[in-house]
Amino acid sequence: MPCLPKALCGALVAALLATSPALADQSTAQPAADPVRVMPLGDSITQGGSIGGYRLDLGAKLRAAGRTVDFVGSLADGPGSLPDRDHEGHPGWTIAQIDAIVVNRLRTYTPRTILLHIGTNDMYGSDPAGAPRRLSALVDKITAQAPGAEVFVSTIIPIRFADATVRNYNAAIVPMLRAKAAAGKRVHVVDMYPAVPISDLPDGIHPNAAGYSKMANAWFNALSSVPGSIGDPPAPGGTCTATPKVTGTWNGGFQAEVTVTNPGATATAGWTVRFTLPGGHVVTQLWGGTASGQVTVTNAAYNGAIGPGASTTFGFIASGSSAAQVSPATCASA
């Protein structure tokens, strides 16, 4: 529970329940701009284990930059601090295994942007020398199925016990990918190998949190360099970011906190945050803002002004029977 006087909590509950019944009606949500659909595609390095891999920090960077992005894929996992868990990262898979399912996944999820890191498991398979040829065929299949998508293909990160093999693979795929781009395909090379040192690979293959954060930086920089790949940049002086985090769960509900940050050069005069809750959930308590709809939150009198680079928070309790989750939030400042 939040640290508030009992009487104040009661007043907040009463105020929320006295608002329009639309608080529990998802049909009253105010639509935000359609998010850019991004598919993280690859093997266990894309899946990222229990820490969510590079997807954790990449998502945070995109939200902080005011970009509205939806990770897509047939799999979903990661820590509670990862608000968007969807991806197409299959532990143990090779290039050929991704090739076998990619057309179906592209048809199903229609990504605008694809982040492909694949080939690690081929390096200690039976034919590492043939991996560049297999990757070329995979990229051709992706660009044929989704010719309008931006396809970011990275060199693979080091493998402690197969460094020479990895280097040979990376050296072969870079000119091949650049040739596809020169032929007019929307293919972009991301040089991931130098971004992650072997010291950040505890088992010699998979990054730790620091290594995944470095991968996130490399992806973010590449995405930022290609207009449209993560949507349009926010308008100067009129943006803020909102990052939700589930802070507690119990049978029948959960508690969450949302951090509102001003990345601009001038102070905000106020802000409005929008997000959705799992089906059947409704807000029953809220502090640090005023809620309406499903769910639109405006600043309280005391926290609307946020200085450049500063942040504030609001929190809420939601009741319902489905799993605790808050959608990626949008934020607009006044």
Score class of each variant (00 low, 15 high):
residue 198 I to G: 08
residue 209 A to W: 05
residue 211 G to T: 02
residue 200 D to M: 01
residue 170 N to S: 11
residue 240 C to P: 11
residue 230 I to S: 11
residue 225 S to P: 12
residue 216 A to S: 14
residue 250 W to S: 13
residue 207 P to K: 15
residue 193 Y to L: 01
residue 180 K to W: 00
residue 254 F to D: 04
residue 238 G to S: 12
residue 164 A to W: 06
residue 168 N to V: 07
residue 256 A to G: 13
residue 245 K to H: 02
residue 167 R to T: 13
residue 242 A to Y: 00
residue 206 H to K: 13
residue 196 V to C: 09
residue 206 H to M: 04
residue 210 A to R: 11
residue 165 T to N: 12
residue 220 F to A: 10
residue 241 T to F: 03
residue 227 P to T: 11
residue 221 N to G: 14
residue 239 T to P: 00
residue 163 D to G: 12
residue 184 G to C: 10
residue 247 T to A: 03
residue 220 F to K: 09
residue 177 L to A: 02
residue 212 Y to F: 10
residue 204 G to R: 01
residue 227 P to D: 00
residue 235 A to E: 08
residue 207 P to G: 15
residue 226 V to W: 10
residue 211 G to K: 04
residue 181 A to H: 07
residue 184 G to D: 10
residue 167 R to F: 03
residue 245 K to Y: 10
residue 215 M to N: 07
residue 174 V to Q: 05
residue 253 G to W: 14
residue 195 A to Y: 04
residue 250 W to T: 03
residue 254 F to M: 11
residue 212 Y to E: 06
residue 200 D to A: 12
residue 182 A to G: 05
residue 195 A to M: 08
residue 229 S to T: 05
residue 199 S to F: 00
residue 258 V to A: 08
residue 190 V to S: 02
residue 253 G to E: 14
residue 253 G to V: 15
residue 187 V to K: 00
residue 179 A to W: 03
residue 205 I to K: 12
residue 194 P to V: 01
residue 164 A to M: 08
residue 168 N to T: 15
residue 211 G to Q: 05
residue 203 D to V: 05
residue 168 N to S: 14
residue 195 A to D: 00
residue 164 A to C: 14
residue 257 E to H: 09
residue 172 A to H: 09
residue 218 A to W: 07
residue 205 I to R: 02
residue 224 S to W: 03
residue 254 F to Q: 11
residue 257 E to K: 13
residue 224 S to N: 01
residue 213 S to A: 15
residue 184 G to H: 13
residue 211 G to M: 07
residue 212 Y to L: 01
residue 241 T to E: 07
residue 193 Y to N: 08
residue 173 I to V: 10
residue 201 L to T: 13
residue 247 T to Q: 07
residue 241 T to L: 00
residue 230 I to Q: 04
residue 208 N to G: 06
residue 167 R to D: 12
residue 229 S to Q: 06
residue 190 V to Q: 00
residue 227 P to L: 07
residue 245 K to C: 10
residue 215 M to P: 00
residue 184 G to L: 06
residue 185 K to E: 08
residue 165 T to F: 03
residue 201 L to W: 14
residue 226 V to Q: 11
residue 245 K to Q: 15
residue 206 H to E: 09
residue 192 M to R: 00
residue 247 T to H: 02
residue 229 S to E: 02
residue 188 H to R: 13
residue 197 P to R: 06
residue 219 W to T: 05
residue 234 P to H: 01
residue 197 P to L: 11
residue 247 T to K: 03
residue 216 A to E: 03
residue 163 D to H: 08
residue 255 Q to L: 04
residue 196 V to P: 04
residue 175 P to W: 08
residue 196 V to Q: 08
residue 162 A to K: 14
residue 239 T to Y: 14
residue 222 A to G: 13
residue 249 T to P: 09
residue 190 V to P: 03
residue 256 A to Q: 01
residue 181 A to Q: 07
residue 248 G to V: 11
residue 195 A to I: 07
residue 164 A to T: 15
residue 247 T to P: 02
residue 198 I to L: 01
residue 204 G to L: 06
residue 184 G to Q: 09
residue 255 Q to P: 02
residue 173 I to A: 08
residue 254 F to N: 06
residue 189 V to K: 11
residue 187 V to L: 02
residue 164 A to V: 11
residue 213 S to W: 01
residue 251 N to E: 09
residue 185 K to Q: 12
residue 255 Q to F: 08
residue 190 V to R: 11
residue 211 G to P: 06
